[in-house]
Design a protein around this nucleic acid. Structure first.
Lengths: 337, 337
DNA sequence: AACACAAAATGAATCGTTTCAATCTAAGTG
DNA sequence: CACTTAGATTGAAACGATTCATTTTGTGTT
């Protein structure tokens, strides 16, 4: 368990420790020949900088924290990738924590990141923790919120515009000539669900069409969607909507199963179907399913940009709330009649 | 950006810095009344230990690194959760890095962890990097390998026994009375694929049945499975297998689609179907699909146990290769005829 | 009241790096 | 050749916690 320090490197290279440090951190200040000599000493000894000592003296860490609500969720996985990729270009590494929607775990990670004196934190918060964020700020740790539209302009945030997404989906269905559109989602008090519904409603009204029929489901899962699909399939055909917009893809895939299996209904001929999120399975469904894509990687990149910008800025930084627009992905489930 | 140090806490509590440190790290050595006084000073000042300083002096970090091949893959997500949960009980935090199968990114994370002087590293390696592991060890950083059966007894490892999994699947099919079993998977040079096939073959031979028909596919994806399913459905019924075992669930779901959509075939009546991995969608498939579950969280927990044990042990630690057995999950796709 | 002994508290030294004022070197100028 | 100046290098101080040999305090015994 040998430990090689800058001192050892300095000895071997025949320079002072200050020079070694400069080679590591400000190579331009050092004569090229010296850089070479020090570099090869580093290589020969297998020197690896001790991050703890470096950070202690320099005061600033090379890492930022990221706390996600659910690391298994592809949305967050993609977001993390986007954030990491951008951070990497800035020589910053990302420590990822998974709160799993638990406030306690969220707290634990924030504590950890605070001890580590990270440069900043990207957070998809479990609940409202403004006090905690203010404490972090008073310690010089910037925080950018992800995936929640905060009207709190005291913090920067990034979010996807769910209302616009709902509008996009409904407009697409309207353009196909569909007139009786149903919305499947729930519970309705969840912000994402109600926003997506609101967007759809707005689009329908703008087109002079009646409000969507709201089919509330107990959860955003495939079985819940399948149950609703089967209920629809059992209806008198004259009572059927001619298009269904589901609040996420799991529901959409479920509805598709319910509509198609052991019935005479066809998608999209009888009912057009569009989901939300564009998960990998949407493309491989029985009938490839149209969806709304959120560009999570972009979101992650933008969030990281804001974070690094803020952490480098002086006091009095003007915080920004970035809202990104989702886009429409058209597949067979909404094509042709 | 105020910074509170042990010194400030010591002043307020009217004790020395050494005592504050003892309250933080060895409370039993300090009189209860003093612990209280120091604790309330900590609370009042909002003191948070500087991890860099602590680690620099104490020499050992409270974190371990985890590098996974693909953080979006549910197997690794679950594994990470298991590892983190156990680590948390030991007061250790986990830094997760995603190599995305890229050697370069893997290297970057190992460098980072080495700088951080983590206690140990849990690694699902991209390629063979024994030299790198030996360098880490010479620095006192233990490494446990995940998800690859190393015959290299110089390192501890955990892995799932894919041969046993294949055997489990085939034995289940045999017990159902199926006699003509096909295997769908590929490319065959992938270890997981060939192991699962080998397990199936072993079970068939033991039962006195012919070797499985091998249906090689170009990738382990749903569309590849669907193509194969459609090819099967187009066969003369007398040429059909009476059971199909796929090397993973994506293929299984695809085969199911290909077999069922626009054909007269039924699952399981005509063809029983079993997948591998037990992903969330297996349960929600058209016909809920039987599968082999790998217990990734357990695997993660065991790997972390090994890692912490080794990192706490003296030199000459005896490394262990743990192989866990997967289990059978029976659903509708293999029940009834 | 003197002594012994354990428990509690002290504080200077230390970890390995970065910083920065001071020093040295070499090339350029009049 | 003396002098200036920019560039290169030096090395001691500092970051904030932990450690541990030493001192202080407190309790019980004779």
């Amino acid at each position: 368990m040998v430990s090689v320090s800058v001192k050892d490197v300095a000895n071997l290279a025949g320079v002072s420790v200050g020079t070694v440090s400069n080679v590591l951190n400000h190579p331009a200040r050092v004569a090229p020949a010296t850089v070479d000599r020090v570099s090869s000493a580093i290589a020969k000894l297998g020197f690896v900088r001790n991050a703890a000592a470096s950070q202690l003296r320099a005061g600033l860490s090379r890492s930022v924290g990221l706390v996600v609500l659910d690391s298994a969720n592809p949305f967050f996985a993609e977001l993390a990738r986007g954030a990491e990729d951008y951070a990497a270009t800035q020589g910053v590494s990302v420590l990822v924590g998974n709160s799993g929607e638990s406030s306690a775990r969220e707290e634990t990670y924030l504590d950890l990141f605070e001890e580590q004196r990270v440069r900043g934190i990207l957070l998809s918060p479990v609940g409202d923790i403004t006090p905690r964020l203010e404490r972090l700020r008073s310690r010089g740790i910037a925080t950018v919120l992800v995936d929640r539209h905060t009207h709190n302009t005291a913090f920067s945030s990034v979010a996807v515009d769910d209302i616009a997404g709902g509008k996009l989906a409904a407009e697409h269905l309207i353009q196909l000539g569909r007139k009786r559109i149903a919305f499947v989602g729930g519970p309705l008090h969840i912000r994402q669900v109600s926003d997506r519904l609101e967007g759809a409603r707005t689009a329908l009204r703008a087109a002079g069409l009646p409000d969507p029929e709201i089919l509330e489901v107990p959860s955003m899962s495939l079985p819940a969607g399948r149950d609703m699909g089967q209920k629809l399939a059992a209806r008198d055909p004259r009572e059927l909507p001619d298009a269904v917009f589901t609040a996420n893809d799991m529901l959409g895939l479920g509805v598709m199963q319910g509509l198609l299996v052991n019935t005479r209904l066809r998608v999209p001929e009888d009912i057009a179907l569009i989901g939300y999120d564009d998960i990998a399975f949407a493309e491989s469904a029985l009938v490839p399913m149209s969806s709304i894509r959120q560009h999570a990687a972009d979101l992650g990149r933008q969030a990281m940009e804001l974070l690094l910008e803020e952490s480098a800025a002086a006091d009095g930084y003007t915080h920004r709330q970035v809202v990104t627009l989702p886009s429409l992905v058209v597949r067979a489930s909404t094509q042709g009649r």
